[in-house]
Nucleic acid binder design. Structure first.
Lengths: 232, 232
DNA sequence: CAACCCCTGACATAATCTGTCATGACAATC
DNA sequence: GATTGTCATGACAGATTATGTCAGGGGTTG
């Protein structure tokens, strides 16, 4: 990769992450750390407001923007392909939200890429791997609850249970296994972490009541999982 | 004046004038006209949509300076989720191109959405539905060939065959079934449409030779498919 | 203290840039 | 048709810049 594309990529990367190290960039672009330092200097000299956090990495001043992003044709095609893949997943909210995001993204395509993306869309299809049944609609709300530390009140129905139980939970992590979305949460009823399949959540409400981060670590949780397929 | 500042100045100048000639810029920056032509090429390659008016000069695409789209939090979460889902697919190019596109998209997030998206990323995981083996790397190139009407020369190995056969094809459609990417193409060897699994393409090259659209209709093709799971 | 991060200068080598020259195309005007 | 003004590209020699390696230095955090 030559210099100008690399400088632009560094700028994009800085805008896409809160903090990034020189080593990470050097690895990503296949150059030496010394070259990254030089690039950073060069961007600064060109007026880019890069912030250095001692011992941590680089970030960029909030709100700094030079020009809109431009996608390569392969990237556009990957977005279209992803849309078809996501359309086959089992959460209605995910499908809808992703499609809405894509509409916005597509509006930024240059006109020649726009016609090509429409052509690709008409010539591609992704078949469902299993029966195509929407199983839940809870993923988006559960994600929002998790990243905003909002408690959730829900009625949950276990597989072998006749009745639902009322649960008040603090969502800590979400994973997908065998096409089923599962939330790991601190359960107020059980006073411990429990897993809940989202398709078994019968009714739920995201509360305004907040919870404190209990420091749940997803990697650690799965590192001791007996099922090897569920190790990271 | 060295290169990077000059490129930035050219970009600034283009944004501030309706039309500007190469000679005018050469005079302004004290470089040759040939260098300006090179700079323009370089900016174009970097994604800047420069418009050439024959015999008149250069301008920049209208709308280039509009502010980027804004996403809702749910849409951001859907993008992050999609990234995890796509990371489990079986084409290396797709995974990589989608990730690159996502970096660019993430660079447009406002900083509070950025920290939330990073939090979600750390608390989510999608397990592979089957063994996580990369099967091919051909999808992106095949997509490009298809939308740009470029022929492809490839060595293809059928399941029961000992040898590969050389094929020259015109890609007409692409679909994914049971996590396998398949291209439907007009095959010059067979003088008819054939399907090819991309993981069985052993070596390929996108040619500069172009083909004419034969009007292949994907919906029609699958409407008469005996396998009901493969109907639209 | 160790680990992690950022920082700069010097140097040899590699890579890229630059101006000049030549050639070609297109549009507008006379 | 000829002329003018513009954009466009390749080739080449010489100039300039970029790069990786090595050495040395600093700050922050647990």
């Amino acid at each position: 990769m030559s210099q100008l594309p690399r400088l632009i990529s560094i700028l994009t990367l800085l805008k896409s992450k809160r903090l990034i190290t020189g080593n990470e960039m050097a690895g990503k672009f296949g150059v030496s750390l010394r070259t990254i330092y030089r690039d950073i200097r060069k961007l600064e000299q060109a007026g880019v407001p890069i912030i250095t956090e001692e011992g941590k990495g680089y970030s960029i001043m909030d709100g700094y923007t030079v020009s809109p992003v431009q996608f390569k044709e392969e990237e556009v095609n990957a977005l279209i392909t992803a849309e078809k893949i996501v359309a086959n997943t089992k959460d209605a909210g995910l499908i809808s939200n992703f499609a809405n995001a894509l509409v916005k993204i597509k509006s930024t395509f240059r006109s020649n890429l726009q016609s090509k993306s429409e052509l690709l869309e008409s010539k591609m299809h992704v078949f469902a791997t299993k029966n195509k049944t929407i199983q839940s609609d809870a993923l988006a709300d559960m994600q929002l609850a998790m990243t905003n530390f909002s408690m959730v009140q829900m009625d949950y129905k276990k597989l072998d249970a006749q009745q639902t139980t009322a649960r008040k939970i603090e969502p800590a992590a979400i994973y997908c296994y065998d096409e089923k979305w599962i939330v790991i949460a601190w359960c107020h009823l059980r006073k411990d972490y429990r897993t809940f399949r989202m398709d078994r959540i019968k009714k739920y409400q995201v509360l305004t009541e907040k919870f404190k981060d209990r420091g749940f670590d997803l990697r650690e949780y799965f590192s001791s999982c007996p099922d090897e397929n569920m190790r990271f």
